[in-house]
C-alpha cells in the first residue's frame, strides 16, 4: 500500500517545527509496511489535490498566512471536493483559520477563506494567546497535549474538535477548540502535534488505511514517544492541580 502526502506551505507555514508531523507520520506508516510519497510545496499550483491521501499545513506569521490564503483560494473548489470525498487533512496553528469563511486582519483587511465551515477569525497584533494545553476529543480516549500560540480569535464554530481542560479555546471564554468536518481536522495547537500525541498519529493512520481491507494496524511500542507524551501530560496535570 502507498500513501501520497502533500506538505503544503512547508517553508511558508513552518514556524514551530511543523515538518516533524510529516516525519513521524511517515516513520509510523513505514513501520506498518505502508509506502510514503511526500510532495512539499509553497504553492498548491502544479498538481491535483485529489491525487493526495493526506494534506498537511502548519503555522505561519500573519504575513505568511495572507500569502497562503491568496494561494489556497485558487484551489477552493478542488479542496472542498477532496474534503467531501474523505481526504484526510490536518491544518494546525493559524492555517486552520483558512478553512473558515473569512479572516479579518489587524488592519481591517479581509482574507477570503475556503469556507469548509462557516466560521470567521479576527486577528490582533496587540494580544497573543499563548500557553500549554490539555484537551480531549470525542473519537480518541486519551487526552491531547500541546501548545497554543495565536494572535486571533475564531467565532462561529458550533462543533469544536477539542474540549479544553487547560489552554485557550477558539475564542475568549470558549472551551471548544478547533473543528472537524469529514476527515479534515483544524486546530490551533502548534508544532509537531503528531509527535506529541502518538494516539492521534495512530488514528490518522487508521483513517488513511481504511480503504485497504488487507491492512491491519500492528501496535509498535515507541518508548520515546510514549515517554514524551506521558511526562508532558504528567507535568501539565501537576500544573493544573496547583
Amino acid at each position: 500500500m502507498k500513501v501520497k502526502i502533500l506538505h503544503l506551505y512547508n517553508n511558508l507555514m513552518n514556524l514551530y517545527g511543523e515538518y516533524a508531523n510529516i516525519s513521524i507520520l511517515c516513520r509510523h506508516l513505514s513501520e506498518q509496511g505502508v509506502e510514503c510519497e511526500i510532495i512539499k510545496s509553497d504553492s498548491c499550483e502544479g498538481f491535483e489535490l485529489s491525487d493526495f491521501d493526506f494534506i498537511y499545513v502548519g503555522s505561519g506569521t500573519e504575513a505568511a498566512q495572507e500569502r497562503a490564503a491568496a494561494d489556497l483560494i485558487r484551489k477552493k473548489d478542488e479542496l472542498l471536493s477532496c474534503a467531501a470525498a474523505g481526504t484526510v487533512m490536518l491544518f494546525t496553528g493559524n492555517s486552520f483559520e483558512l478553512l473558515g469563511s473569512k479572516i479579518t486582519e489587524d488592519d481591517g483587511k479581509v482574507l477570503e477563506g475556503i469556507g469548509l465551515k462557516d466560521f470567521e477569525t479576527k486577528v490582533s497584533y496587540k494580544k497573543r494567546y499563548t500557553g500549554d494545553c490539555v484537551c480531549s476529543c470525542k473519537f480518541i480516549e486519551k487526552p491531547f497535549v500541546g501548545f497554543i500560540n495565536k494572535g486571533s480569535q475564531t467565532f462561529g464554530i458550533t462543533e469544536p474538535l477539542f474540549q479544553m481542560q487547560m489552554g485557550e479555546g477558539n475564542s475568549e471564554g470558549d472551551k471548544g477548540e478547533g473543528f472537524r468536518q469529514y476527515n479534515v481536522f483544524g486546530t490551533h495547537l502548534i508544532g509537531p502535534i503528531l509527535v506529541k500525541n502518538p494516539h492521534f498519529t495512530k488514528y490518522i493512520i487508521e483513517l488513511l488505511t481504511k480503504g485497504d481491507k488487507h491492512f491491519s494496524y500492528t501496535d509498535k511500542f515507541s518508548p520515546y514517544e510514549q515517554g514524551s507524551y506521558e511526562i508532558t501530560l504528567r507535568e501539565l496535570n501537576k500544573r493544573m492541580n496547583t
Partner: peptide
Amino acid sequence: YFTGETSWLWD
C-alpha cells in the same frame, strides 16, 4: 515561566 513546549527541538 513553566512550559512543556518542545517544538523548538525540531528546529
